[in-house]
Design a protein around this nucleic acid. Structure first.
Lengths: 153, 153
DNA sequence: CCAATATCAGGTAGACTGATATGT
DNA sequence: CACATATCAGTCTACCTGATATTG
């Protein structure tokens, strides 16, 4: 992503957003890696923690990926011992996902470190400024989704 | 990326940043795809346009990827006819990259459409608010890089 | 001989599409 | 039979590491 467009002298906002996201991702990676997780795997784990008993097909719908991609991610996390799957007795064609004790513990530790990272990074804004920033992010995301391309699914 | 951390009730700022970046990326994709470019390829092209005659090793340093990854990207863009390479006569171990006419024209068209996208998306903030947003992004990126993990290279 | 560059080969993560088996 | 789910297989992209040749 390059810094600026054809007409302006300042970096594109699109570029600044990407730059911040990448910087944060690098930090996330440093946090999750010692626990044997990639940032994506951490994220998936936290989605599953918040939606107990979900199937991988449902996970795929929630995270806008194909059921196959979701299945692979779940299989990886299962192989690493962070979760287990059980046949859903009410609907035996699907498997309920449950975090193992190791999964729960690891997630909690990552959450704590990431809370601290966010406190660090965003304390460079004042409290009021931080709230304005939060609102601006939400507003622009909504505006972007409204603009142009229709949403998938 | 899940919405919130362990303690708060609001989505993590980290999550909101990623969400906006992904929404913008979807739009970028819609813009560049008709020209036969991915958003990354467009970005590379605009970096090379701004740094005429750069080698792919230099591109790698600028974009924080390995020389091999940069070389692959350049090779792809060359294959698609957006740029050409010539031996640098001052330093014959490296190749200068130059945009073709098609590359320059395509880049200009994408830039124009992306300018319009940004105008669309960020007009949902007022002028003053947009400047605050820009400053907040830059401030947080700097704070993130200062925090924790040392910078690569 | 050492450093920087280009480039080939092989590997990985995470997405995709397509095909198949099974349960409702 | 239709449909949802799980899961296997193959492919793609964009990165990675390692090895090698060439130039300075």
């Amino acid at each position: 992503m390059e810094a600026r467009g054809a007409s302006s002298d300042e970096p594109r906002l699109t570029y600044l957003v990407k730059q911040l996201q990448e910087a944060l991702l690098d930090q996330l990676d440093g946090i999750t890696q010692p626990f044997g997780l990639t940032p994506r795997q951490y994220t998936t784990l936290s989605v599953l923690a918040r939606h107990r008993g979900m199937s991988s097909a449902a996970l795929g719908r929630l995270t806008f990926v194909t059921p196959q991609a979701a299945h692979e991610m779940v299989a990886t996390l299962e192989r690493k011992g962070f979760l287990e799957r059980f046949v859903d007795e009410d609907n035996r064609r699907q498997l309920e996902v449950e975090l193992t004790r190791a999964g729960t513990r690891t997630l909690a530790r990552c959450d704590e470190l990431i809370d601290r990272l966010e406190a660090d990074v965003f304390s460079s804004l004042g409290t009021a400024e931080r709230e304005r920033f939060r609102r601006a992010l939400a507003t622009c995301t909504a505006a972007t989704q409204r603009s142009g391309v229709p949403v998938r699914r």
